[in-house]
Design a protein around this nucleic acid. Sequence first.
DNA 1: AATGAAAAAACAAACGATTTTGCATTATTT
DNA 2: AAATAATGCAAAATCGTTTGTTTTTTCATT
Lengths: 338, 338
Amino acid sequence: MKTTLETIARNTGFSKSTISRVLNNKAYASRISKETVDIILNEAERCGYTPNLIAKNLRINKSQTIGLLVPSLANPYFAEIASVIVLESRKYGYTTIVADTMENENMQNASITNILTRQVDGIIIVPCGSNPAYLEQTNKQCVPIILVDRYYENSPLPYVVTNNFHGGYMATSLLVRNGHKDIACIQGPPAAMTNRKRIAGYMSVLKENHLEDRAIITGNEFSIQNGYLETKLLLNNERRPTAIFALSNNIGLGAIKAIREARLRIPEDISLISFDNYLYLDFLEPPVTRIGQMVDEMGKMAVKLLNESIANHREIKSQIELSPEMIMRDSVAPLISR
Amino acid sequence: MKTTLETIARNTGFSKSTISRVLNNKAYASRISKETVDIILNEAERCGYTPNLIAKNLRINKSQTIGLLVPSLANPYFAEIASVIVLESRKYGYTTIVADTMENENMQNASITNILTRQVDGIIIVPCGSNPAYLEQTNKQCVPIILVDRYYENSPLPYVVTNNFHGGYMATSLLVRNGHKDIACIQGPPAAMTNRKRIAGYMSVLKENHLEDRAIITGNEFSIQNGYLETKLLLNNERRPTAIFALSNNIGLGAIKAIREARLRIPEDISLISFDNYLYLDFLEPPVTRIGQMVDEMGKMAVKLLNESIANHREIKSQIELSPEMIMRDSVAPLISR
DNA sequence: AATGAAAAAACAAACGATTTTGCATTATTT
DNA sequence: AAATAATGCAAAATCGTTTGTTTTTTCATT
């Protein structure tokens, strides 16, 4: 038999309201006597009372739950984000409902509808697709939303992302400083903001160095397959690039595979720099130089903002960009003029 | 203003009970006229009604939610398990609350208590620690629990895990078939069941081949650091092993690092086989031969069992072991007698 | 002893759904 | 025409909390 406030009330002879106040540490404010408090706490302990948060939530109209949507938990990058957010939000007293949107906009919207029926207090999401309408509506009318890692251009939705322009800039600068002039850039989805910003950073460096007509931009997906195919093509060009900038960890992996198949050496024959930090990259031959994102800060910031928005009941406008970091390894080398 | 059954009731003139039945597709069974149904459905649509699952759950005493606890979402292996389970349970209509236990037994128990207050219908957990008492109590008295990936010996808790004995057996057999006689085994926590079973498989092969006195078992953690240090030590032995069996992906990585630092080649100088499948292992030099677990089947099976247990309201006794698979790559070579 | 204020606890109404029971009204049967 | 059955819906209880209001008790004061 499950024990409720009613159970304790019967066993002690006090009323449900008194029990409730005691268990919620409102005894003093409600002038409940010390003796009563003791009796009730003891009985609660004795019969192993656990509150029914469902009932509480219905009453107070808060669920102390947030929804977390990511494009793919199987991707270690998003898994890491999820890990940070789950742990961090627990510190604020939130429980996290997680959904995997499979990089599919319909799935994303369906998941939002679903978690809204569960009365989440707020949503953190790594969005996918290009239409923020439903998210905006939800943010306006239902619960606060914070975007992480990705955002929509011209949308008022608050976000915490990496300064991808800067990331692209840093990566390309490094290559240029090493004497590279023919730098290929293998991109993800051309529509994705993260992708476009990185490209913009890349182009900016080329322009500053008057190399813009030597820009080579190719690719269309953040996938291993894309990195592999595009690199294959690049290596067969009459004018082979001396360096490759891969706009994601997966693209980088695909590039490595193709470079190895061509029996070229990194970095002697071709330099490589990629985006996203990941431990395994240190175990490749050679370890891969990369632009890392501050996943920890990103997650923590998102939770903090969401919590503020929930607590203060006001809309958050923050659109925050965090600086990426350069992780120097051995896959970039100075160009030996030949 | 949020719309509830009451809103629709007022707007249409019907009672809440009628609205409820219509929206739950019980109109026919309750002999509600076609016209009424139409009116109600239209109004629900018009005012954008979304049910409040919190209220529903309170009433029907089910949350259509399951809890998923993993030791670390940041570990891609567990993230993959989580991914499968989140997606699969959605198919059954469950929403998933995820908690990260940080490989900490206290955290695990605290998380269980927490999600129980949220009235989850069941729990899927990759357990940590060695004391199943609280889990068993919860399973008996509150909601069904299914363990995945790991289990407790002598505990009645149902589980879906890999046949780790078989995995250890397969890996070691491969090495022996390749002529290796001095095979070191770097283990994780000696108390962990998964670890002990793998060790047992390893020993079994050695015994069958009368090599048991040449067994070398060392290590104590499923971490990169452990794999690295233990391998360092092994390579400095007067009698260096000709093959290493790493009992986890992380241990394998650490071993690779140490082997490279010693300027030895894999597999020419030393063979390596590790446990757990992971895509990145194909990009190492050489690609790592490994024992993979059927993560997909494991997750799906766990959800299926849990759902049955919830639906049929009876305790599940299943203790299921899935066969691992050998993933042949290039890190194991025949021993050249010297 | 009567009065009044303060202290302690009970009452009762929500929260938003589901579900049992019951009551008209209409249709069918005898 | 009377009895019975079927139809269509409403009322109200319930799930386990929280919380504003009211009641009862205690105790000091006059």
